[in-house]
Structures are given as C-alpha cells and as structure tokens.
Design a protein around this nucleic acid. Structure first.
Lengths: 190, 190
DNA sequence: ACCTGAACACCGTTCAAGT
DNA sequence: ACCTGAACACCGTTCAAGT
C-alpha cells in the first residue's frame, strides 16, 4: 500500500536552494531586508535554521547572492530584436527591469553592494549585444550600455525613496518621469 | 596654574556628533559597512559603546542617517553658474559627486536605502535650480535632474562592482566611460 | 543524506549606577 | 551632563549527535 502524503516532518517537501531563495525573497519583500534572518527563514520553511546550511554551505552570503541573481540577472533578449528597432527593444527591457527592481526594492541595497558581479555583467553584455545587432559601434555601445543600466538602477533607487517621502516628490508621476529620462539617455546613444 | 591637556580619560576631546560620524565614516571606508558596530565605534573613540547613545538617541539608525547626509547631501552651487554654461556647472557637479560616492563606496548601499530622504531631495532641488537659471523650463528640468542624479548614483554603483571583478570590465577606463555617459544624459536635457 | 540541539562569539539597546 | 557595567534579547555559525 502506497503511503499517502501527509503534513508531518517526514513528508513535507524537501528543502532546496529554489525553495529557500523563494522564501527569503518573500520575507524581504514583505518585511524588509533587515528582518531576513536565518532563524526566521527557517521558521518560514518549517525547519530549524541550521538545516539551511546544508544547502547553502557559504551561509547567508550565498543566500544574498542568490537574491541578487534572482532580481538583477535579467538580460535583454537580443534574438527578439530586429536590427532597426534596437531602441524599442532597450526601452522594453528597461521598463521590465525597473518593474523588477521596484517589486523587490528591499534587494536594491544588495544589488549595489559588491555581491554577485556575474548577474550585472551578463545584463550589461546583453544590452551591448542588442546594440551591436542594431549596427552601433563597439565603443558607443559600451558607453550606452553602462549609462542605461546605471540610469535604470539609480532612478529606481530615487523612486523607492521619493515615493516614501512627504516632500516635493510626493505628487511626482514616476512612470512618466522614468520614461522621459530614459528617452534622454537613448536619444544620444548610437 | 592652568592644567595642561594630557592623554587620560578626563581630558580627552569630548564626544560630539561630528567626531562620532567622522570615526564611523573612517571605519566604513577602511573596513566596510559590515564592520561598523557600536562597540567597535566606541573603541575607535576610546569610549564605551553605550556612551554614543547619549549623543545619538536614535542609536545606529541616526548614525547611518548621518553618514548618508555626509556623503549624499552635496548640492550643486547654483550661484556659481552663469546662465549660459549650466551644462558645464552640472558636469562639474557630477564629477565631484561621483568622486564622493566612490571615495565612500561603503555608504552607497545606505544611500540607496530608505534612509535620509532630505539629503537627496536637497541635491535634486539644486540641480533643478541650476537649470532654471539656465532658462530650462520646469518639467524638462525636473526630468533631467532626476535622470542626472540617477545616472551618477547608478553608474557609481556599477563602477564599484566593475573595478572589483575579473570579467570583461577589468580594463575599462571608468573615468572616460562616466564622462561619455554623462554627455549622453546632458545632450538631450533642456 | 539530511536535519536537530546545544553552544559560542558576537550584535543593538536598556537601565541603573557612578562621577 | 556625561559616561560605565551589567544585563537582555537577539544574531550567524560550528559541531556533535540523531535518523
């Protein structure tokens, strides 16, 4: 007779890097980065905190690296770009990337820290590739790629702070402002 | 007879917010944000950690706010700008602001966090004012101000990570790249 | 192989006490 | 007014032990 799955310690879904990262992201999004502790993460996964180290030997460092990779490694799809409309491709990518950053604003400080260089490197490379296929020369493409990613990250940081404060920024239409600034950056590119 | 200053517990320079912030910044610049603890800060000031709370009632939160203010509140000098060369004024401001951010890279994650909205708000306002005096209309100036500050902060974040990694970015001339990207942003402004 | 429990060396912060 | 010392409730992480 086959054992039925039941809700006890033996039969619950086994721990995995994916489940751990997902639970961590949920804590950060819901309660903030400061409240992400190994003990609380263990509670969320219905496991003792120390069990997590079995799946992430480098501990919390590795956990945070995973969060950055999950949020910041979102390359533009160079294959979807017909050569003529590379600006449109980059505009669409920027809108999506900004959404990700704002949806996981708690991870932003980690993106800005030294952690996980690979995630951002891959993203920059994809931006350069989209431009290369659009006929932009190497050096201007490299400049524009860093300018674009820098703008998106920096503007997202300003938005997160601006929407929270009571100052002159309270009534700003951030969507419109982001798009207008994006056009500024893309207009000169190429 | 006047007592000579001497190196003991009675006669050392009294604690002050300035001395505390200075010592904290030195720890962050030298050892990283993660090693800034109240106990270590107390050691640096030759004082028990708990004495710090007498000068910063809001504790570590207030300390970090002070660091952000020290690094991120660097407005452009609108009075020094003759109307015609507002682009030059902004270029000079951007170069200086970037230097500050790179010199205190450990504080960057805090600038990106929710702390101390006033510091960045004042900086944005000064950028708008420089443009206003240059004859730029209000709405384009507001867009360009946020785009510019966003670009500078975001690019600085990429630089801090880029110079540390061994990937394709190792040989990048970041000074040149920053300036070229800055021209991209400023060219469309106004 | 995977998880637990106890333990260690730290944190930020409170509070009563000293001067 | 300004600083100290002891204490509290947390951290991340190690390690021996369980199954």
């Amino acid at each position: 007779m086959v054992r039925q799955p039941s809700i006890n310690a033996q039969n619950r879904a086994p721990l995995s890097i994916e489940r751990i990262t997902e639970a961590a992201l949920q804590i950060v999004d819901g309660q903030g980065l400061g409240r992400l502790t190994m003990r609380r993460l263990g509670d969320a996964l219905e496991v003792e905190a120390m069990a997590i180290y079995h799946h992430l030997p480098r501990g919390k460092e590795q956990l945070l690296d995973g969060l950055v990779a999950h949020v910041a490694a979102a390359p533009a799809d160079a294959s979807a770009a017909d050569a003529a409309s590379w600006r449109g491709t980059l505009r669409a990518w920027a809108a999506g990337y900004r959404s990700r950053l704002l949806a996981h604003a708690g991870v932003l400080p980690l993106v800005v820290t030294r952690r996980n260089p690979a995630a951002l490197a891959a993203t920059v490379a994809s931006l350069r590739e989209v431009m290369r296929q659009g006929g932009v020369r190497e050096e201007p493409a490299a400049v524009a790629a860093h300018a674009l990613l820098g703008y998106v990250i920096g503007h997202a940081a300003l938005e997160v702070r601006g929407t929270a404060e009571d100052g002159a920024d309270r009534a700003v239409d951030w969507d419109a402002r982001f798009t207008a600034g994006l056009d500024l950056v893309l207009a000169g590119a190429g």
